[in-house]
């Protein structure tokens, strides 16, 4: 293949256009507002397992539009969604590309269960209806009393094996809650879910954590891990914390990989045919 050629073909372009149209139609019907937030911003996430691409003099290419979308919610926006490019440093492989398209949406007054139902509705519309199996993190991974590295590896292997079929993984251990709140009836687990389809991790959602103090605590823990692993230093996004102080409304949010969804719709096993150009 010469370098001028796209990764996909005309049929792939047509399928991508149809998918984007369908996603926008889905949210228009449910009166969820489309927004656009900057892809380039002064700050980024503290997550030790998500490396951002730094743009010297400007900040970082965003790994997800989460913080800025939550700032919109804190400023009074209704339920919103965004289709945007997201960036991850050195994530390249069969199911990864350093630039990818993310669909992220937030639903006011939803909890994670209501949002899981909506994620299933959306996926059914794109891939056709099917049943969903719910499995807890502990059921999937087995013994929890192990190091985080071992748990991550066990999760990677076990989620690969969730195939064929559609699976919601729920009840992540509290320390893997990311920005999900802890379950009121069981604070050992977070109100976080992931959707795995045919072994492919497709979406990750939370019943969102609101408390600014708990956010700061989790971010400080992230920074300590980043320092220990000698990762690129990042600062806590003060504009995001200020928005939390002003008050994030009760909501649930989810991010879904659009290129992976297109890949599944095309019946492909790799992102190659779903991506327009494979630059990485």
């Amino acid at each position: 293949m010469t370098s001028m050629q796209p990764s996909t073909d005309v049929n792939g372009l047509v399928q991508r256009a149809a998918l984007l149209q369908r996603l926008r139609g889905f949210f228009a019907q449910r009166q969820v507002l489309e927004v656009q937030t900057p892809v380039l911003a002064p700050n980024t996430v503290t997550d030790p397992d998500v490396e951002s691409i730094a743009v010297p003099g400007y900040g970082f290419l965003q790994t997800s539009p989460e913080y800025q979308m939550k700032r919109l919610l804190a400023a009074g926006a209704p339920s919103i969604y965004q289709l945007a490019p997201a960036f991850r440093h050195e994530e390249v492989g069969r199911l990864h590309n350093s630039e990818f398209t993310m669909l992220e949406w937030y639903r006011l007054d939803f909890d994670h269960n209501q949002l899981m139902d909506e994620v299933a509705d959306l996926v059914n519309e794109v891939l056709g209806p099917a049943s969903y199996t719910t499995v807890t993190y502990a059921e999937l991974v087995g013994e929890l009393g192990r190091s985080r590295d071992e748990l991550d590896l066990a999760f990677a292997e076990a989620s690969d094996a969730l195939s064929p079929g559609r699976f919601f993984v729920v009840d992540y251990p509290a320390d893997q809650g990311a920005l999900a709140r802890l379950k009121p009836d069981n604070p050992a687990v977070a109100a976080r879910f992931e959707l795995i389809i045919d072994g492919v991790e497709l979406a990750n959602g939370y019943w969102e954590l609101l408390d600014p103090g708990e956010h700061l605590q989790r971010f400080q823990q992230d920074l300590a891990v980043r320092k220990r692993r000698e990762l690129q230093p990042v600062e806590i996004d003060s504009a995001f914390i200020a928005a939390l102080d002003a008050g994030l409304p009760t909501c649930a949010g989810v991010a879904l990989g659009v290129d992976r969804l297109l890949m599944l719709a095309m019946g492909e096993r790799s992102l190659d045919k779903a991506l327009t150009f494979r630059n990485f």
């Binding site: 994530e91 492989g93 590896l153 990677a156």
Partner: peptide, 12 residues
């Protein structure tokens, strides 16, 4: 050599 990474987890 396949890159494997859960969204919020360690890369392998």
């Amino acid at each position: 050599n396949e890159f494997v990474k859960p969204g919020k987890g360690q890369a392998f």
